[in-house]
Design a protein around this nucleic acid. Structure first.
Lengths: 211, 211, 211, 211
DNA sequence: CATGAATGAGAGTTCATTCAT
DNA sequence: TATGAATGAACTCTCATTCAT
């Protein structure tokens, strides 16, 4: 029995019922463990959540940074960020949702840490947008709103994307790049060839099936 | 002491800490009432939530339908819907968030009812989009994604809009109409004069200040 | 609205669900009264029970004493007592049962009072038995056991007697006299002509129908 | 700490104060356990009662059947049944009383189960009585009343029998056999030698002392 | 590595009772 | 006479957590 299995079960439960509504015994029986045994793998309920969120946000930041390496052009960078964000969210929907929703369940100290990571991640988008606007590539009434709208859109993917759905992951990514370009009034040529789309990784806490 | 006050306190708590993490005593003391007294006004914790969500979704549906009356042109209708959605969400951010987030906290029977209302609301958007596409006003790779992205964007407003913020409500509404038009590739003239923007109502359960 | 109605409703509930399991609101709605209004008629839940039991035991004692007046012969007196006891229990089954079962629900002080009444009632039987034995009319291995058995038997009538049942009240009374005579080894002639059977009264707290 | 101890404490409390009036904390402290710990041994308050009643009624049925094996003569069978009933009740007075009194505290489903057991037990008496009557051994005005009176008498033993009292258990048993024979007008020779009296067992839920 | 037993705290809910109206 | 509002205390039950085994 490894920590990953526990995290997967936790994420599955937290995504479905919420952190506060999920009992520690429930988690235990989901992995076939006595509730007391869980305390050998995780230091407590909050520690479990904190570990999951920390892994998730770290993966998002490092993944986004890696995606950014694909270009120095702000337009392409934004496209890469959007594609990564959508990709990550679609690949790790439960973990991403838990990470977003359950920030409030953390104690103040832990929340501050996680919020800092979240801010760092969002700053990557803000930077690309600002760079693009400075060089005149983007045109929008309010850059702040555009950024928030872009991120919210991408995050929303976790609500509906299914790997076996109508659209492939790459299609969804390209689609969202297209939406982003429109929002920013970038002329409608794809700034990114499909083979350059960031390929997201499944992280350890993401449950295999959403049942 | 009226039901509205109780609902407001409940929404404030539920939005901040979540339904499951909010105790009934906490709610009581938030309105200066003994926990037992709450049961004079409310049949139970879930009934309280259910009442709030039902009022909210009903207001959203009737408000959206009323907004739709402003025009028969799908493009303008979509603009009106977006403006209403953003307006409602910005005006009732806590209630809207609770209504969206806490669906999972409901018992299966109640959840089905509320989900039906939510579906009815979203269908209004789907209908306008489809009508517009049929008449060739919209151009997008995938209409489904576009709708989801639009709604998610609008819902996200509850996360950041402040009445005393940098932008007025009307500005935000117009901004989102503009985003929507870009997403749907409608040529960039505002389809709606500002004085035709739907003016959203504050519903009873929305707390006055977000303290 | 009179006290009697409240007592009847109370007895009906107490007999069915028990004193502790019956709520004051339940009683109120059974007579169409707000729970607070009940406090105009009765000083509290225990006072209500106490009043019922006091009335019942008083009626039993005075009824038994009156029955005793029918003869000075211990054998006939015992027959009269048995007939009265059975008659009273069959006529006021719910009140009699509540009076017997719920002694334990009383506070110590009140219990002592009621127990004293109960003891006085039972003493009437003990006296008749002793008198009969002294004059050699009864023959039994243990007079104490005989008395307890006799009373228990009679009390049990409340469990099964129905006014519209197979046997009339007089038949049941005669039957129990016969049983008593056998238990005490009195030769088998009826010591009591049917027209001398004590006719029991319905007391105020006895509910009309047992629904 | 075993289930039996918990049952004993429960029976002691239920017999004294009644099921509804007994709190779960009260039970816990009666066995020196935290109220939460009780739920390791018992699934809930009603489960606890149900278990006790089920054990008791099962023991009564099997004990009575075993007693019946002592003879094929209905008269002796009835004597054996009466002796067993009195013996069981005197040996397990609290459990027997709780089992009889608290049927009403059960939920409808559970009550039906227990009532069926109770009916099966009483049927054993009804069968013996009927068999005896068919062969002309019994003479009574009404067999139904006789049976009810017999059982009620025996059950009443729980109210007054004390192991250290004036009469030994065997004496009480013989006494009740004698009463039964008189009630049924069987000529007065003891149908049962004392050494054939059924010896009742103490069941697990019966508290050791009635303090 | 794993667990049953144990617990204090707290959950949602109902209680009998009071009181101003 | 009647009631809605209010409350402290208690209810049954579940929680996260600890610890000896």
């Amino acid at each position: 029995m490894e920590l990953g299995k526990v995290q997967q079960a936790a994420v599955a439960c937290f995504a479905q019922r919420g952190f506060a509504a999920t009992g520690i015994r429930e988690l235990g029986s989901a992995v076939g463990l006595n509730s007391a045994t869980l305390y050998h793998y995780v230091g407590g309920k909050e520690d479990l959540l904190l570990g999951i969120m920390n892994d998730c946000l770290s993966a998002m930041i490092s993944g986004a940074k890696q995606a950014l390496d694909g270009s120095t052009d702000p337009v392409r960078q934004l496209a890469l960020l959007v594609a990564f964000h959508v990709g990550f969210t679609a690949t790790n929907p439960s973990t991403a949702r838990v990470t977003e929703y359950e920030m409030r369940a953390l104690s103040p100290a832990a929340r501050k840490q996680m919020q800092a990571l979240r801010d760092a991640y969002e700053q990557l988008f803000a930077d690309a947008l600002q760079a693009g606007e400075r060089q005149g590539s983007f045109s929008t009434a309010d850059l702040g709103i555009a950024r928030l709208a872009l991120m919210e859109m991408g995050t929303g993917v976790s609500h509906w994307y299914r790997p076996d759905g109508r659209l492939s992951l790459a299609e969804v990514q390209l689609n969202f790049i297209s939406l982003a370009m429109r929002i920013l009034a970038v002329p409608d040529e794809f700034p990114l060839p499909p083979q350059q789309l960031p390929v997201p990784q499944v992280i350890a806490s993401e449950p295999t099936s959403k049942d």
